[in-house]
């Protein structure tokens, strides 16, 4: 049975289309839903977790329809929203016990001890959550989500606002859960995390899926090397033969791709100077997942005069 499937899943808020005909099929894997803020990630999760009615289309969780068999779906899943909603006036144990009671699980105390131990919270279990760090609170939410041994886990931005060490720890826990047979559906806008920990990712842009692939294959689409330029001044016009622009990043970096990147550097340099740009640096580097994102989605705020949309449609065709 396929853990998660969507068919033309669509959500309109009035005239705004938040999610547009989403077709996904997700197995026992860590599946990342990526996209900039407002791209429809949370809306998708809310529909899959029976919290929001789709406008059109359908979604099933282990064969159960999220609308018609919502109760069955809720029995199989756990949902951790991005808000970090734990009761700070209760202890860690009390927070988990509350969920264990609501799930009506047998042998409650054992289970609570086990999930707290799994999330490395045993030692601090009886302290008030007020004294927990952000990473601990997030792990506590995971512990809550695990008390009924769900088959699918939905995490909305699980590492938002956490420091690097805490993020790493959360992801390691997620990996262990997956290895135990759990399907993990996670949204994030941290590219590096998606690259390292997700088996497959879907890139969402304005409610549309721009790509569904493993992170390494997505990166492979960009070729071996990229040219990175830091410059100022306005530029426009047609790029020299064989060079394409992926777009400009928020930090002022412009990224170009080419078959033989290092050989094209002089050409690009001359062309940019002719355009009247002031070049601060020009270098060749390996593509990162950020570049994939830039190529597929862009930055939203187009800082460049190039028509990088042309490149994007090309990449999709490939």
């Amino acid at each position: 049975m396929i853990p998660l499937e969507t068919h033309g899943l669509t959500k309109h808020y009035g005239s705004l289309c938040a999610v547009d005909h989403l077709d996904l099929s997700i197995g026992n894997e860590i599946f990342g839903l990526l996209g900039p803020n407002g791209s429809g990630k949370t809306t998708t999760v809310l529909m899959l977790t029976t919290l929001l009615k789709p406008t059109k289309g359908s979604a099933t969780v282990f064969g159960h329809d999220v609308e018609r068999e919502a109760q069955e779906v809720r029995n199989l899943i756990s949902y951790v929203p991005q808000d970090m909603a734990v009761d700070i006036k209760l202890t860690g144990r009390e927070n988990v016990a509350f969920f264990a009671k609501l799930y009506g699980i047998p042998r409650r105390d054992e289970t609570i001890d086990r999930v707290l131990w799994m999330m490395d919270l045993s030692e601090r279990a009886d302290d008030l959550v007020r004294t927990y760090s952000g990473g601990m609170r997030r792990r506590l939410e995971l512990a809550q989500a695990l008390v009924h041994e769900p088959k699918a886990l939905f995490l909305d931005e699980p590492t938002i606002g956490l420091d690097v060490a805490a993020r790493k720890k959360i992801w390691e826990h997620i990996r262990i859960l997956k290895s135990r047979g759990m399907t993990v559906f996670v949204t994030t806008h941290y590219m590096d995390e998606a690259e390292h920990y997700c088996d497959r990712v879907a890139i969402l842009d304005h409610g549309l899926v721009a790509a569904v692939e493993s992170p390494s294959r997505l990166k492979g689409m960009l070729g071996k090397d990229l040219i990175s330029a830091r410059m100022s001044g306005r530029i426009g016009g047609n790029l020299p033969e064989g060079i394409e622009c992926l777009g400009g990043k928020e930090d002022g970096e412009f990224v170009f791709s080419s078959e033989h990147a290092s050989e094209k550097v002089p050409t690009l340099f001359r062309w940019l100077e002719e355009q009247g740009a002031v070049i601060h640096s020009l270098s060749v580097r390996e593509p990162t997942f950020d570049d994939v994102f830039l190529a597929l989605v862009g930055t939203g705020d187009e800082a460049t005069g190039f028509d990088d949309r042309k490149f994007r449609t090309m990449l999709r065709r490939r």
Binding site: L46, T49, T50, L51, Q71, R74, N75, I77, S78, Y79, V80, P81, Q82, D83, M84, A85, F99, L102, Y103, G104, Q144
Partner: peptide
């Protein structure tokens, strides 16, 4: 506002 309600609504209870 704080997200508790959504967590509760996703429970089978």
């Amino acid at each position: 506002i704080l997200g508790f309600l959504n967590k509760f609504l996703a429970l089978p209870s």
